[in-house]
Design a protein around this nucleic acid. Structure first.
Lengths: 334, 334
DNA sequence: TTGAAAGCGCTAACAG
DNA sequence: CTGTTAGCGCTTTCAA
């Protein structure tokens, strides 16, 4: 497969190179006749425009930079749907996705922007006070945050409304007559990284419990995996309550805790209630299916991409765009 | 943050633009003195070379294209480690990763190659007879396959040695005195997609069972999730055997089947033996920890990237590079 | 409605 | 050891 240039297309179609360009971009009117000849030449040669040349000339790469949390022991559960949705939305507008990992820190953002590797950047997995934000705000390339840091530095934010999620969970447990609540925390390294949504959820849970007049025990940190889950279950078993309701915001922790409770003879949905913060798909697959507040990465990602493409057409004042979660009753709350 | 060009650096350092380029690439000797001045200028301006311009001039993008299986209901379990390892290896050599999803089909490969978006492509999730292979073989950009199709079309392949994995599993069950084996299959859509490794594993399991003189029941297809796992457990329970050994190559299916067996009072590791094909990390986390044949995406990815960078320096005759799995005894085989 | 031509920012001969 | 210069393949004025 030889590789052709727009010059070859032009020659074959008997037009100038600029005409080929204009046919492709639609940026100026072209007679139906020449347009046909050009398009015909394009696919007879299976011509594809050279991305580097195009980027150089047009200052547009048609690439979206995506900074994802790898490496650091992250809650990676919901990550794939984010990536997938973002990639899909990008392709729908003839853009590609360049992947950068979080462990590069701000250097990754500098590189994406400095080298003009992409037209816009999506930043995930924000810490509450993230040093990458200063860089992100400083850079010419528009940056969209998935997550809401303490200070967004004038950047656009999109995220699930974690405070509302907490309110929904607590509200449901209050409405079903629980007299005491417990919150199962995240692993220590996640808490230490001070991820924005973790704190947002905890704070709102506390506030909601207080406003319902319910005592709240916080069991944290709780690492991933079986052992830690057993420990958490033991701690739950030790709580004195007429009717105890448990909230578990760490998706990965939900299933192990359900098992551990069962193993102690505390059947979720009968002896103890559990509400998890996880995707509907994941909630439907737990054993037993856990009543959940939705955490839908696809919705968040889609919204982020909409914002991104709007920003690429015209600048906009930054805003915080929160997506409302919903509660789905399954088998773990009575 | 204004953005500078190598001309600005040259001016500030009092040298020519080409000298700046050579300092960065190391492609010709530079006196210690000018090198210092240039490097100094570079970081005073926080200069970063424009990727498009560099690609255009050098015919090298410093980008690796990665085609990942999204969308199609894929066994997505082990995907993240692949991506992560590949991204890391790329960064270690100053390359970035451009993500393309499988559901674009061969068009994705055409685009990556045709637009010169990357220097090399890694293709995952191959079907045994994949229409993308013809395109991949036709294209100037080197392509590395993770997986081994029936006909590699002269492309480099890297993968786990699934046949050896099957032999290890069957051998272990034979050695521990099992008189009958069962293989739990994949979901129907995965089988229909005719993924290369699925067939390789099945065939080798059959052959190994035969060579040990052990009867083998194949229970397939088995969908993801609880219900299908119960069905599979029922089928296992119905098999007449003195000592039954089960092999489960679908990572996602291992845990649900273990639960389902337990629920029927068939305790894995006591009443029935189970060997899973999954990563060591995942195996250690199942309940109970399942004896496993390793499926280590990191090793495979690392190897693929080594091959890729070698190929970028000099062409090489294609080869099939199989990574040897190992068996780890945990608690589900007696 | 179309063409000619000037760059975009870099690399890599070629020349000294 | 370093500078000059000719492109890389595209987009986009400017002119017609």
């Amino acid at each position: 497969m030889a590789t052709f240039t727009s010059k070859d297309v032009a020659r074959l179609a008997g037009v100038s190179q600029s005409t080929v360009s204009y046919v492709m971009s639609g940026k100026r009117p072209i007679s139906e006749d020449t347009r046909r000849r050009v398009l015909d030449a394009i696919d007879r040669l299976t011509y594809e425009p050279n991305a580097g040349a195009r980027a150089l000339a047009s200052q547009r790469t048609n690439v979206v930079g995506l900074v994802v949390p790898f490496g650091a022991g992250v809650d990676t559960t919901g990550l794939l749907p984010f990536i997938e949705t973002i990639a899909g939305a990008a392709r729908a507008r003839d853009h590609d996705v360049l992947l950068v990992t979080t462990n590069e820190g701000s250097a990754g953002i500098r590189r994406l922007a400095g080298r003009s590797l992409c037209d816009a950047i999506i930043l995930m997995d924000l810490q509450r006070d993230d040093d990458r934000l200063a860089v992100a705000a400083d850079v010419r390339t528009p940056v969209i945050l998935i997550g809401v840091p303490d200070d967004p530095h004038g950047l656009h934010c999109v995220d699930l409304d974690f405070a509302e999620a907490a309110r929904l969970a607590v509200g449901e447990l209050a409405a079903t007559g629980h007299d005491r609540l417990a919150l199962i925390g995240h692993p220590a390294d996640i808490v230490e990284r001070d991820l924005n949504y973790v704190r947002r959820f905890y704070d709102a849970t506390r506030a909601a419990a207080a406003s319902h007049g319910l005592p709240l025990d916080v069991i944290a940190p709780v690492e991933w995996g079986r052992e830690a889950a057993s420990g958490a279950a033991a701690a739950l078993a030790a709580i004195e309550a007429r009717k105890l309701g448990v909230v578990i915001p760490a998706s990965n922790t939900v299933q192990p805790v359900l098992h551990a409770l069962n193993a102690r003879g505390l059947v979720p949905g009968r002896d103890i209630s559990v509400i998890g913060l996880l995707t509907d798909a994941a909630a439907a697959e737990t054993e037993p299916p856990v009543t959940n507040v939705s955490l839908e990465p696809r919705d968040v990602s889609r919204r982020a991409m909409e914002t991104l493409f709007r920003l690429l057409e015209a600048p906009e004042p930054p805003q915080v765009d929160l997506i409302t979660p919903k509660l789905t009753r399954r088998q773990t709350v009575t």
